[in-house]
Design a protein around this nucleic acid. Structure first.
Lengths: 206, 206, 206, 206
DNA sequence: AATGAATGAGGGTTCATTCAT
DNA sequence: AATGAATGAACCCTCATTCAT
């Protein structure tokens, strides 16, 4: 049963957003099973029972967190590609760059989204897989078109595409705001490494 | 504190190995917090209390699983590198290849090891970080020596090295024995992609 | 840490009082370690989990029982002494008498309080010792003033004072409501015996 | 079922004595229910299972500890009285004195014996009550004979006798070997206080 | 919108005890 | 005489969730 929450669409109440953020932080620190509804309530400054005004269950909370983030990942990537013109190399560079930036901009969400998929119940997991596939397919399309045009030399476009998404997503696992590199610098480097990975001969010289 | 188990060394009893495997499978399916000691006991065909003959706690079980796997990851990689001769390109190819093979050969362990680090208590996490660093440093050394010798063109050896390990490890996240590619084929491709990533001009043509 | 219970002060809820009484009885019959939370819950007609609405732990329950009783012991004794005028003999008689009456009036609490001190965790035990000292010191002051004024002949006021408190407290260990003597009669006799113990020459003839 | 141990009579094996002492200490520190058989085994340097060679159960261990101590309390008191001649005052002085000495000489046993009676199962508790009565009756006899002869002025020989035993036994609850008074000095004082308690006019001047 | 009280199920862990060796 | 392995029951406590108010 889905909650009475207005989902990604309508304006969520202030309290709901508070609960959402509290849950996100708790799942990040303790994991889905390790975080209790009491923990979340305390972190959000509300009563455990109050959470059930916005979410029908703990699972519902997790699903909201994951699906919202994934949808924005998709939207962000789509925009980056469509703004990059027609050159597959420019498109891949832009897609990788934006994916790194997006994940580095919210490492907490990114980590939860990528580590708690297992905690989704079958029905929700299915929807999640669809979103992940949608994201992956955008990268696949870019790499495959580059391979078809001959600008990417890789003989395995599918593996390369998967590796690109994987390594860009993983940035959230180690990125620290206090590190020596800015998110933009890291994103640039991953853009170039992605081009290397697919065997692009026309990659912009760093 | 730690159990009477002979650790990675001596011959563990049959029952202990049974418990170990049962715990591994349960952690894989339900996660550390999601798996109960009763689940593990049932999966191993023993009593919950019997587990405590071999492991002092649930945490002790997780630590054994993780540290054993990490140690073998280190040993495997070290052997691969030292058997590969003096050429950094050959070394990186061999290291990436063996790392993919190792993780694909035991996706269950690999997944648990790479997703339950958060569940380690501070003391154990510290030891785990040391092992992860040891593994990463072996790849770093290869990439850096290649960069110093001029056989790797990458301007960012450190990021490239991290990306290589990341993407090879992640193979366990999607590899299925029933897939179209054999582990050896996948490993080969990742070997080559790793060389691309570091800008190797001397990579063997696939 | 400590529960939300209003302690000795405010009005405790009916359910909390029920739990308190159930725990008291269980500790009396089985001892602290021998009584289980399930026993207590059953005795109070509630669920085990419900107990944790009022008390944060089994230890918290014990501490509430002990500290409440001790505080009333102190208050009772203080009143008795201050109502007894200036004569140390009258004061000691009154103090011993009221202490016997108090302990005989609630042998269950008295027994638990005096036999489960060991079960207190260090922090709580410390607070308990302070209360016991406060009670003992009131008797000490009376005996010492009597010795100083020469109305008590005992050469060892400190030992005598301790013996008085000991023997009066111990009444709870054997007093039975069905016995041949009323609490008042027993209290009178212990008042006189206390005067004997300190070598009072002016004790009222029984 | 009683154990195969040779009871208080025959020569106990060295190991059994070790187990006995370990149990005594554990019961002293943690209480009967609070001490586990594993605790006792560890304290005695043996295996939990080994304990069952000497004692049939945990309860059997407690009973052995309590009944041995009580029997010696009785024997000690009987000797003291019979060695004291015919004067009830001398007898009471000697009995109180020896009882204090005995309890102060083994505060650990004394504490366990006097605080774990509740932990005895019905059958064993009955036997314990018989021993306690036997001890009390020896004091009663002395006080009553003194009252009959007119050398003790107390109008309540029974209460006085109980108070004497109580306060002497309780010495074990606070006596510390490092204290300012030697056991002998404390015993003397309690002997004199006992005479005061029964209203003896012929008590030896301290 | 929000709460405090309550629940039944289950959490990790320890228990006294047994038994084949 | 002594052990290591094992058990079934029970331990204290916390869980997600409900519901009258």
């Amino acid at each position: 049963m889905t909650s009475k929450r207005p989902s990604a669409a309508g304006q969520a109440s202030v309290s709901q957003e508070t609960v959402f953020q509290a849950a996100l932080r708790c799942f990040y620190v303790h994991g889905y099973d390790g975080a209790s509804m009491r923990d979340i309530a305390k972190a959000g400054g509300v009563t455990p029972a109050a959470i059930y005004h916005y979410y029908s269950s703990k699972q519902d909370l997790l699903m909201d967190i994951i699906s919202r983030f994934m949808q924005r990942s998709i939207d962000t990537t789509r925009s980056a590609i469509s703004d990059a013109g027609d050159d597959p190399a420019e498109q891949l560079f832009a897609a990788a760059r934006s994916h790194v930036l997006w994940n580095a901009s919210d490492v907490v969400s990114s980590f939860v989204v990528n580590s708690e998929i297992r905690s989704l119940e079958p029905h929700n997991r299915q929807r999640n897989i669809a979103q992940r596939d949608e994201l992956q397919r955008m990268f696949d399309a870019v790499v495959e078109s580059g391979a078809a045009e001959g600008v990417f030399a890789t003989p395995w476009p599918r593996e390369a595409s998967r590796a690109v998404v994987t390594m860009c997503t993983a940035v959230a696992g180690w990125y620290k705001a206090a590190g020596p590199l800015s998110p933009g610098e890291i994103a640039d480097r991953y853009g170039h490494m992605s081009l290397s990975l697919v065997g692009s001969g026309t990659q912009v010289q760093p």
